[in-house]
Simulated assay, not measured.
Amino acid sequence: MNGVKVMRAAGPGLLAAALLALLPAPAHAADGEFSWSTSGVGAMDGVLSSPKSGRCYSLVGNNSPFYASNNTDRTVRSYQSSSCRGEVQSTIGPGEFGHVFKYVKFD
């Protein structure tokens, strides 16, 4: 009979744990820095340190696409819309460099 009581007491805790597992995970910051330039390799117009995953960032500068260096542990995707929605214009993996448009989001 004690075993039955233990099972009943553990039931609500297990249900709560199962429900928490279904909730979306909170956004985590990417480790490292993402930098970009409007004037080419060697110049730097801006840096994002440990950018949050899932957040849309607007890069400073007028001459998009920008040269960018992704020294984070996350992939960055660039967009032409300020909401970071629609077609992905470019993707730069961790430790890579390339061109991005004005709006970027980290996975």
Rank of each mutant, 00 (worst) to 15 (best):
K52L: 10
K52H: 04
P94R: 03
L19H: 03
Y57F: 15
A17E: 11
R85P: 04
A27G: 14
S69W: 05
M1A: 07
G32F: 05
Y67Q: 06
S49Q: 12
A16M: 13
Y79S: 08
N70E: 06
S53G: 14
D45H: 15
V47Q: 14
M7L: 13
A10G: 01
R55Q: 13
V6S: 10
A29Q: 02
Q89S: 06
A10S: 13
S58R: 14
K52V: 10
S90F: 00
L59V: 08
S53T: 15
A43K: 15
V100E: 01
F66M: 01
P12A: 08
P12K: 05
C84P: 01
F97C: 12
A68S: 11
E87P: 03
S58Q: 13
S39K: 15
E96F: 06
S82C: 07
G54P: 08
P24I: 12
D107M: 05
S58L: 05
S53D: 07
R77L: 03
V60P: 06
W36M: 05
Y103N: 01
A30S: 11
H99W: 13
S90H: 03
P51F: 00
V76M: 09
R77Q: 07
G13H: 03
K52T: 07
F106E: 00
F34N: 04
G95V: 09
V88N: 04
G98Y: 01
A25E: 13
V104W: 01
V47M: 15
V60L: 12
A9E: 13
E96V: 05
F66V: 02
L23Q: 13
A43D: 15
N71H: 11
C84S: 01
A21Q: 14
N62L: 14
L19F: 06
S49R: 14
P94C: 01
L14H: 08
S82G: 12
C56D: 08
L14C: 11
L20S: 10
G93T: 09
G86V: 03
V6N: 09
S78Q: 08
S78A: 04
V76A: 04
S39W: 15
V6I: 14
V88H: 04
T38A: 15
M1I: 02
A43W: 12
G61C: 02
G61S: 01
Y57A: 06
L19G: 03
G93Q: 14
S50P: 06
D107T: 06
M7K: 10
M7E: 08
Y103C: 01
G42T: 11
A43G: 15
A17I: 15
V47N: 10
A30M: 05
S39G: 15
A43T: 15
N63A: 13
L59N: 03
R85K: 11
P26T: 13
S39I: 14
P24M: 09
S49W: 08
G46Y: 03
E96D: 13
S90G: 01
T38H: 14
M1R: 07
R85Q: 12
A27W: 09
G3V: 05
E96W: 09
W36C: 00
G32R: 09
L14A: 13
H99V: 08
W36P: 00
F101W: 12
S37R: 09
R77V: 02
G11Y: 10
Q80D: 07
P65F: 06
T72H: 02
R85A: 11
K105S: 08
M7H: 10
S83D: 14
V41N: 07
G42E: 11
D31C: 05
S78C: 07
M1P: 03
A21P: 06
G32H: 09
F101V: 00
A17P: 11
M44Y: 12
V88E: 02
